[in-house]
Design a protein around this nucleic acid. Sequence first.
RNA 1: CGGGGUGUAGCGCAGCCUGGUAGCGCAACUGCUUUGGGAGCAGUAGGUCGUAGGUUCAAAUCCUGCCACCCCGACCA
Length: 611
Amino acid sequence: MLAGDVNGTARIAFKQSSFPSRRVCQTAIIVGLTTQLTEEHAMKASVFHLATQREVPADAEIVSHQLMLRTGMIRKLTSGIYTWTPLGLKVLRKVEQVVREEMDRADSLEMLMPSVQPAELWQETGRWDDFGPLLLKMSDRAGREFAFGPTHEEVITEFARAEVRSYKQLPICFYQIQTKFRDEIRPRFGVMRAREFLMKDGYSFHIDEDCMGRYYQVMYDTYTRIFERLELKFKAVTADSGAIGGAVSHEFHVLADSGEDQIAHVPGGDYASNVELAEAVAQGERAEATEEMRLVDTPNAKTIADLVEGFDLPIEKTVKTLVVEGSEESGHDFIALLVRGDHELNAVKAEKLPQVASPLRMAGEEEIRKAIGAGPGSLGPAKLPIPCIVDRQVALMSDFGAGANIDDKHYFGINWGRDVDLPEVADIRNVVAGDPASDGSGHLELIRGIEVGHIFQLGRKYSESMNAVVMDENGRAIHPAMGCYGIGVSRIVAAAIEQNHDDKGIIWPEPMAPFDVVILPMNAKKSHRVRELADQLYEQLGQAGLQVLLDDRPLRPGVMFADAELIGIPHQLVIGDRGLDNGIVEYRRRGGENHEIKIDEIRNWIDNLNG
RNA sequence: CGGGGUGUAGCGCAGCCUGGUAGCGCAACUGCUUUGGGAGCAGUAGGUCGUAGGUUCAAAUCCUGCCACCCCGACCA
């Protein structure tokens, strides 16, 4: 059809002259020319689905979400649920493959578990209720209940209790890369916090804690290698294990200012922790009292800021009193928590206090009035009718000011012991920049990160609740210790963009770029030699094992440049008559230096690139 | 779930207050010109105005319910 078309457009002519078009490939299938079909690296823009957009979609807040939509990597189907387009999938698969290779290297065994899981399994561990509304529940025609798996501890433990019966089979680790669903209350930022997402989850089984600990270290190293291979700037931090359970846990964060998590670390040192967990160490010693405690009228002082401005009180001499719901075992409806005026309460730490209800709930104004007799702006430790726990730093304060538990009145010059008995002391605040690290290694700096991996030493939580047992050397049935290891594969794609972009678009780390090289022929329609060299390079690069995109679309140069930069292809070759006159093609490194390559040196250049 | 906001062409928006048969930019399609940084001209196509009801001679516009989506808070890979 194309061959004899004298009046055919240049576009058709160009396609015709190049490497197998879609039509030719189909023919090749028929005649069995499979060698050409294995050329899956190579792709022409004219047969690919490039769907870039110039305008920024209105509801995309962060850069990665905007760029993923503008490049056409993803399309939203509904809230928190996205289609990965051919372009986006190429990136996702690359990340997946690095994860797979490193997991395999650590002797972890890939498998695939069901995403639809029966309710009974979740009821066994109690998580059918504990997981709460995050669990997407559904029922079949017979009314039996199921959940779409948000994680797979139950399924793997069920699998292991049937398959793994002897210590001789241990240790063993299984993993899968699979779509998960968590019905997040508020999905946002595109695939960064989606409801449906791609996750690598791994689970290991061990005869004892010792072995679990050793394999945990193997996974720690594996994760480190994964993020190094992906060329991301990241940090491993000690973390809270949250709903999954277990004692020891580390999170892996891709560092980016837009990250939702705060990390406390010692610059240049080993200490790094999620702020949720970072221990706040009290500094200094309590000074002698120099003032008398006095009741002061503070009619308009409802906040710490009012107090500081209106009464010339240094913020380090003020105390915030927060009222939270008490736990059942505390025997009280409400508990007061005190932190210094310039500090913040740490909810994770507070929740772990036995007196405090979990999850943490702040008391409302009405509840506070009923329990204390004054409003939230006038609370303090003196003459407080409910139990009280103070932060370590608060315990070291002297001559400080706090509410008097009478509306519009504060006590100034309060001193522990003399005026008020020192209540229970605990670490309940967030660390701030400059605090000493709890290991004494230096002073903390706070940075932001995106959590892309989390490893846990689970222990026997699941093997016990689901009664998975193996026989040990002495013929006794024991519950194996478990570890679990997650990586947010789809989130990594977004996190990588957050960390690597400029005003023109994405700057992919090479290992996850959708294509290695793009060929941009200038004015190919008119220039036979441009077309010829483009085709030749396309073939050579493909045969060299590089994933190459030939932009054979009949477009103006500006559009081609803009697309190549937006999509973020690391290496660009610009072929034009201007360069050919001088025997060169132009090479551009996305986000880096440009230079010229002599045409007769291209072969070397390609070999170099590939090596 | 609580608080706020928005639903009009694939994307971004105007029109609504003051009811009168729906418009702009980008994208798409056709033709000609143009071709080293998101072209120009001419033409074409595309919309149950989220949805259901109500008021009215007449509803994108006014009223009510519902739905969806987005933003701020607690959760997570």
